[in-house]
Simulated assay, not measured.
Amino acid sequence: MIKRLALSAAAFGLLAAPAVQAEEPAEQPAEMTKGEKRLAKMLEGRVAGEPERCIRTIPSRSLVQIDDTALVYRAGKTIWVNYTKTPDAIDDFDYLVIRKFSASQLCRTDQVETYSRAGHFFSGVIFLDDFVPYRLPDAEG
């Protein structure tokens, strides 16, 4: 009987004790791709703002493609980045055909198709997401 009580107490103690888990090694961050490095260099020293559905594109400037990463639009001191829902469809060997629903804005609902520069063949579709503004922080003082 005493032996049974001792075993019950020991079992109860195991249930009440916090579980000890072996520490898993920290996951190493993945190496940045060539496109991610290029974008990081463009955004160096800048701070991300609130994403917006549309950006003003007047006066017209070119949209820069960064392979497998993002589309970038520079307007004054702001760099707008659209990481897209399909970054793997971005290839700077392709050109973009954009069907905009507004003459003065580029919006996440606009249609973007890609075509090969060599043969002008349809090569894919890019699904836009919100545009993230990156600006230099205000100077303190």
Rank of each mutant, 00 (worst) to 15 (best):
C107K: 02
G141I: 06
E36N: 13
K37M: 07
P137H: 11
V132C: 09
F12D: 02
E113R: 10
L7H: 15
P18D: 15
P87K: 06
R108W: 07
V20R: 09
D68A: 13
R61L: 10
A118I: 15
F121D: 05
S60Y: 04
Y134K: 01
T69A: 14
R46M: 02
A40E: 08
L96T: 09
A22D: 01
Y73G: 07
I55E: 12
D138F: 11
V112P: 00
P87W: 03
L136D: 04
Y83N: 13
A17E: 10
F122G: 01
K100S: 09
A103D: 15
M42G: 03
P29N: 10
P59G: 04
P137E: 05
T57Q: 10
L96S: 06
V132H: 02
R99C: 12
V47Y: 15
M42H: 05
A16W: 05
K85R: 12
F101D: 03
G13R: 08
P59Y: 02
A70V: 02
V132T: 04
P133N: 04
I2M: 09
K37D: 03
T57G: 06
F12N: 06
V97T: 11
D68G: 09
A16K: 07
G119L: 14
A16S: 05
F93I: 06
S102D: 07
M1I: 04
V47N: 14
A6T: 07
T114S: 06
G141T: 01
M1H: 10
P29D: 06
T84L: 04
E24K: 14
D110A: 06
F93Q: 08
Y115P: 00
T86V: 12
R99Y: 15
A10C: 05
P137K: 12
V132N: 05
M32V: 13
C54P: 14
K77W: 05
S102Y: 08
F93N: 08
E27H: 05
D94Q: 07
G45C: 01
E113D: 10
G76V: 10
V47E: 12
A22W: 10
L15Q: 08
E23M: 14
L39C: 04
S102T: 05
K77L: 11
F121V: 11
P18S: 15
V125E: 03
L96D: 02
R38G: 07
I79C: 02
A30S: 13
V125G: 00
R53S: 09
T86P: 09
E27R: 06
D94V: 02
T84S: 07
E44F: 07
V64F: 14
E52C: 13
E44M: 04
G45H: 01
L71M: 01
W80S: 12
A139L: 09
S62M: 15
A26K: 05
P87C: 12
G76W: 04
R53A: 09
S62A: 15
Q21V: 02
Q65A: 04
R108P: 03
V125T: 01
T69E: 11
Y83P: 12
I55A: 12
F122I: 04
R117K: 13
R117W: 03
K34W: 05
R117I: 04
A19G: 03
R61A: 08
R53F: 05
M1V: 03
R117M: 10
S102R: 09
I66M: 12
E140V: 11
S102H: 09
T109W: 13
A6H: 15
E31R: 13
F122N: 00
P87A: 11
F101C: 00
D110Y: 04
R135V: 08
Y115C: 06
